[in-house]
């Protein structure tokens, strides 16, 4: 993957590269260049985020904002039935979803990246094949597996029966005990290409001299992996962890397609994204205030944890390399 080498993004943000530093053009010119992007981004992304904080402290009646109620909406989230039960349950599901996905996608993503790094032919082909599901919409992947796993007409159960594994034929998505693990597996199937590509780029970035030196010192393949490759992959693992965390705590389409808007069966696949959607758009008259409060909590959690994690990984990286 020689292409990545052409984008020295990380480094160039820290250092001043050639050609930079000349005194800027007059400010009206600067403004003319910057304003379109600034306006678009501020009006449609940043401002609504700020407003959500403000809205979370008001009572809503439909679309109209009524009186200031302080933390009233936040209190409602944790006391009003059924939200008070759905919210903690969905939160736990998101955690399981994140950890399960991380285990599947990274174990196999790293394994395949290592295998692909060592082969001569077909590297690009396998990379492309493995990445294909990642590019497909989570909703479509969900619907695809919804049909595949259909207990009556789905190919999966029929294949299992045909090869004599009838005991494994099961309404995977219909049973509350297996529904969430199944969705995690499907998510892992979709996501694998993402860590694979990142690990591949990371492995390609480790210079041959380093490997050669380790070899001369008599390191085994396993030692090379645990002592050299893995520590050098720390920044990659950091990026994957944070991006997967953000994605999995925003999970929506894949669960919608496999478990419906209510996280069926019996709420066993309900996640925060669905709770948020239902609170905002299928809730009562005061839905917008409640949803804004939930948005603020989710934002603090997701943005806070990812910023924290990035900091930790950066420190780890400094210590290991």
């Amino acid at each position: 993957m020689g292409e990545t080498a052409k984008i020295p993004v990380e480094k160039s943000h820290r250092k001043t590269a050639r050609g930079v530093g000349r005194s800027a053009p007059p400010w009206p010119t600067v403004a003319a260049f910057l304003l379109p992007a600034f306006m678009l981004y501020t009006i449609f992304m940043i401002w609504p985020l700020i407003q959500a904080v403000y809205f979370s402290m008001y009572e809503f009646k439909g679309l109209s904002r009524e009186g200031f109620i302080g933390l009233g909406n936040f209190k409602e989230l944790f006391t009003r039935y059924p939200l008070n039960e759905q919210l903690p349950r969905a939160f736990m599901h998101n955690i399981a979803f994140f950890i399960g996905t991380m285990l599947i996608q990274n174990t196999f993503g790293l394994l395949f990246a290592l295998l692909l790094h060592g082969i001569r032919k077909g590297k690009r082909f396998f990379q492309s094949v493995y990445t294909t599901p990642y590019l497909i919409s989570a909703l479509i992947v969900g619907y695809l597996w919804n049909l595949m796993l259909n207990p009556l007409f789905g190919p999966i159960n029929n294949i299992l029966k045909a090869i004599g594994l009838e005991a494994l034929a099961h309404p995977w998505l219909g049973d509350p005990a297996t529904a969430l693990p199944t969705i995690i597996l499907v998510n892992g199937w979709q996501m694998l290409g993402f860590p694979l590509l990142l690990f591949s780029a990371g492995l390609a970035g480790i210079s041959d001299e380093v490997r050669e030196a380790a070899r001369i010192d008599g390191a085994s393949r396993w030692q090379l992996f645990t002592r050299i490759e893995l520590p050098l992959l720390t920044p990659v693992i950091g990026v994957i962890t944070v991006l997967t965390f953000i994605r999995d705590f925003n999970a929506f389409g894949i669960v919608w397609a496999l478990g419906g808007v209510g996280g069926e069966p019996a709420g066993s696949t309900d996640v925060l994204g669905l709770v948020f959607y239902r609170t905002a758009f299928q809730g009562g008259i005061d839905a917008f205030g409640l949803a804004s409060a939930l948005a603020v909590l989710m934002f603090i959690f997701i943005f806070g944890i990812s910023t924290l994690a990035l900091g930790i990984f950066r420190r780890l990286e400094d210590r290991l390399t």
């Binding site: 992007a37 981004y41 009006i43 449609f44 992304m45 940043i46 401002w47 609504p48 985020l49 407003q51 959500a52 809205f55 679309l63 944070v242 953000i246 705590f249 925003n250 929506f252 994204g273 948020f276 905002a280 917008f288 949803a291 804004s292 948005a295 603020v296 989710m298 934002f299 997701i302 943005f303 990812s306 910023t307």
Partner: peptide, 21 residues
């Protein structure tokens, strides 16, 4: 601008919806 790379913007859908409305 870079801060936007990591922000879960969908959570701002309610104010965004009201503004667009």
């Amino acid at each position: 601008f870079m801060a936007g790379l990591m922000m879960p913007f969908r959570l701002a859908i309610v104010p965004l919806f009201m503004m667009l409305n």
